[in-house]
Design a protein around this nucleic acid. Structure first.
Lengths: 346, 346
DNA sequence: TTGAAAGCGCTAACAA
DNA sequence: TTGTTAGCGCTTTCAA
């Protein structure tokens, strides 16, 4: 049923070889032959079998991306935007994207192994790096092409794109301190996550630099979901001495925290300041709009993908390590009640 | 470098065929031979080349999913959850997932064509069906296996999973009417989208059934983003006679509308009721929590995937058409100020 | 300018 | 129980 090179060869009387060359724009085919062949291909509705090409070329023109989900009801707007970035870039570069979903932990590495061993993809994108990341150790040890969004603490040298989360949180912290906050709470992320670790550091460092005490009671860990943000904020507001500001390691938890603050009858941005990290589109539309640290998520997706393609193609990498400077976006959730404009502080 | 069947054959002295059979658990291999072969395979670190298997088997064990993005900064939590559903189910069934991102419109169909013609995938998942959907016409005409999330108006018979959006919105509308609302506005979605059309119908039908006027001035169209929800609500609140309730075709727009209502100094759920559709996780954590119509997004992803796999495997489809009954989730954004509990109305 | 032949790595029908 | 042979659809030497 499907039309193959052989069908065209038979139809035109040329050999499969010549047909292949004509169709692939080789220059050792006479114009007339080429025309005949192309017309016939057109007429019969020929389209190359991609799998056969893959086998022959010994590459799949496919990139792998394993999304580290966190439970069944996984819904992080971060990933749609990131996916759009890598998806569009991949397709612009002529690559397909093979996506798998797996929760972090046991079994996750098996997916990586399958892709690598089976030569299922030409390269991999790794996100949410851990401080000691077994995925990265594995890929490094297999000499498999990959690019990470995020660094690690100990896996040696590999190409990555990262944002300076420590600096981002430092700016947000300083912003709060400058507005007179002293009791500032922090909703941390899993400390195995590199960015969770870095962001917490940004907070503790800045507190210390300003000679403010770092109170362990004011640091609560969440799992990046709104729900956990709510819960964390509840614990913080139940303290004998409540904080005047709550910083969260990501926007989703910040949004959850805002809900709790409001449920306690406080006004966010006036009684209690709340800040996030990521600047997902919702941050701008929450009530009140959320002060946060912007990451250009879509752009990061594009960049990571771009670097990976360069790596696969063997071209020299312009930049093996990219570190982006995050931007503090001040909105009403942290502004003094008077101000209401959105101010961007570079 | 990579170990192939031939390497094992050479190492053990058996033929490639025997090696293949031993490794694939055929029963016409002597136990001793099998053991030798398996041990050698293990020792050499053999793993089958997946591409070669695909070519030989004439199938890719891969499902295609083309995400219809809406602009670069695409970030709809709906899709992460949906993706988690199909991703997990696909992997449970032994399928990989090839994901592509493309905005609806010109060029989109090319991606479908490439996947179909190149035999890149064994089947496709189609979402956000349009009333006249060229993707579906194409797949139908190519006799290519696919399952849609959503129906169409005219494309004939094809397998789909859908929720009864009309009934869902009808319930929400009735809920508002029962609470005394009369001037109810509706933020519609693109009317080419089947669900956009259906949801609007649910609203107009219910208004008429209750002998309430359907005022065109109270119907505004948005593009499903929060931003457009904001804008739409702004237009509605600028009307000489403002509505007492605003229904949106999805949660994202409802969240945007809430922001506008609040910016106008109204209290959501008291002065103006707001409702959404989808029940994305954020709906529960907004301020106030959003009354909405629940779709089991993750579950729908699983189901669509399951049906597609059945279809590909040629098994008889238990259910070619699945229509889910949506559930109204009443929260504070529509409840009379007194009530504050979450009530689920089946 | 063209074609024959080999081969990518695997599976399967058929014979021995 | 095992091997021979063929072939999936394509690309790419190499020789004519």
């Amino acid at each position: 049923m499907p039309v193959t090179l052989r069908d065209i060869a038979q139809e035109t009387g040329y050999s499969v070889t010549t047909v292949s060359r004509a169709l692939n724009d080789y220059d050792d085919v006479s114009p007339k032959t080429r025309r005949t062949i192309c017309e016939t291909a057109e007429r019969l509705g020929y389209h190359p079998n991609i799998t056969a090409q893959h086998l022959q070329r010994q590459r799949t023109d496919t990139l792998g991306f394993i999304i580290p989900t966190t439970g069944p009801r996984f819904s992080d707007p971060f990933f749609t935007e990131f996916l759009a970035g890598i998806g569009n870039e991949a397709s612009a570069q002529g690559y397909d994207l093979l996506v798998s979903t797996h929760s972090a932990g046991p079994g996750e590495l098996d997916v990586y192994r399958r892709f690598v061993r089976g030569k299922r993809v030409d390269g991999l994108l790794v996100v949410r790096t851990r401080r000691h990341d077994s995925r990265i150790s594995y890929l490094l040890e297999q000499h498999f092409p990959f690019v990470a969004f995020g660094r690690t603490e100990c896996n040696g040298n590999f190409p990555f794109v990262d944002e300076d989360g420590r600096a981002g949180i430092a700016r947000a912290t300083q912003h709060l301190i400058d507005h007179g906050h002293r009791r500032i709470a922090f909703i941390a992320a899993d400390q195995d996550l590199m960015f969770g670790h870095e962001r917490l550091r940004g907070y503790t460092d800045t507190m210390r630099e300003n000679n403010l005490p770092v109170d362990d009671g004011l640091i609560v860990e969440g799992d990046l979901s709104q729900r956990s943000g709510r819960r964390a904020a509840r614990r913080l507001l139940d303290l004998p001495e409540t904080p005047t500001a709550i910083m969260a390691s990501n926007d989703l938890m910040a949004l959850g925290a805002m809900a709790t603050v409001q449920a306690h009858g406080f006004e966010v941005g006036k009684d209690v300041a709340v800040t996030g990290f990521d600047d997902i589109p919702l941050a701008e539309h929450s009530h009140p709009p959320l002060t946060t640290v912007r990451q250009p998520i879509y752009r990061i997706g594009e960049m990571v993908c771009q670097v990976l393609v360069d790596l696969i193609r063997g071209g020299p990498l312009k930049r093996r390590h990219v570190i982006l400077e995050p931007t503090l976006i001040v909105r009403q959730s942290s502004a003094p009640a008077a101000s209401s404009a959105t101010i961007s502080v570079g």
